[in-house]
Simulated scan of single mutants.
Amino acid sequence: MTGARCDRVVTAGTFSLDGGTWDVENNVWVVGDAEECIVIDAAHDAKPILEAVAGRRVLAVLLTHAHDDHIGAAGDLSAATGAPSYLHPGDRVLWDRVHAFAPDQELADGDVFEVGGIRLRVLHTPGHAPGACCFYSEELGAVFTGDTLFQGGPGATGRSFSDFPTIIDSIREKVLSLPPATVVHTGHGDDTTVGAEAPDLDAWIARGH
């Protein structure tokens, strides 16, 4: 096993879409070893994220999707670390509502990022947002799902650019196909596992949201 670790940073702010604004707390994940790391999501405020980075070299800022609560600190974080931001092009329509500048690089399904002796594989999982992505590490036995899958069910699909059947297909094909013991590190709230969520798929479909 490598010396890689995964640190969670919780940041607080707001999420705004479709004319509404809500107070939210977000999980930001810093994955790496003592020398280098990758940041997953850039929520609200760069300062606590930089404190968790603790002077390490940041290789990339990977964005699970472009709702404003997940990308608000992307510019500040990239400026402070020199690390490029990565976003799936399907979410540019959301990104452009928040930032006047473009993300540095595009994500694509199957891309692999290496850090601290582990790999993060990009899983394109549209539904909550068109360009939503998860990041899977076999070495860590974990998947970072953003707002695609939470403890207790799929992410919300009741707002613009979201679709319930699409998120169900994404979860079934890309997430629940992972080993049952895989830890699910979410964009908000507590962890779960693939095995804990998989039995409820039919109930989510019956509920329809």
Rank of each mutant, 00 (worst) to 15 (best):
T148C: 10
L178H: 06
G155T: 07
L149A: 03
D163F: 01
T166C: 11
S177K: 11
G155Q: 08
S162V: 14
F144G: 06
G146V: 10
T192D: 04
P179R: 03
F161V: 14
D191Q: 10
S137C: 10
G158Y: 03
E139M: 06
T193P: 01
H185F: 06
A156N: 14
L140K: 00
V184A: 05
P154Q: 03
T192S: 13
G131W: 02
S162Y: 04
G189D: 12
I168L: 14
T193H: 00
T182D: 04
L176C: 11
G187K: 07
S162L: 07
G152N: 07
G141C: 02
G187R: 10
A132Q: 09
T157Y: 02
I168Y: 01
I171T: 02
P179H: 00
S160M: 12
T157K: 10
V143R: 03
L176Y: 08
D163Y: 00
G131T: 04
I167F: 00
T193D: 00
S160W: 04
D190W: 02
F135D: 09
G189R: 09
S177R: 13
R159E: 11
F135E: 10
S177A: 15
G146C: 13
S177V: 12
S170P: 02
L140H: 00
R159H: 13
T166R: 14
V143I: 12
G195L: 13
T166M: 13
D190A: 13
A132S: 12
G195Y: 06
G152Q: 05
P130W: 01
H188F: 06
I168V: 15
T182Q: 03
S170Y: 01
V184N: 06
K174Y: 02
G155P: 06
S160D: 12
T157R: 09
D191I: 11
L149P: 04
I167N: 08
D147M: 08
D191W: 04
D191V: 12
E138T: 10
G131C: 08
E139P: 01
R159A: 12
K174F: 05
A156L: 14
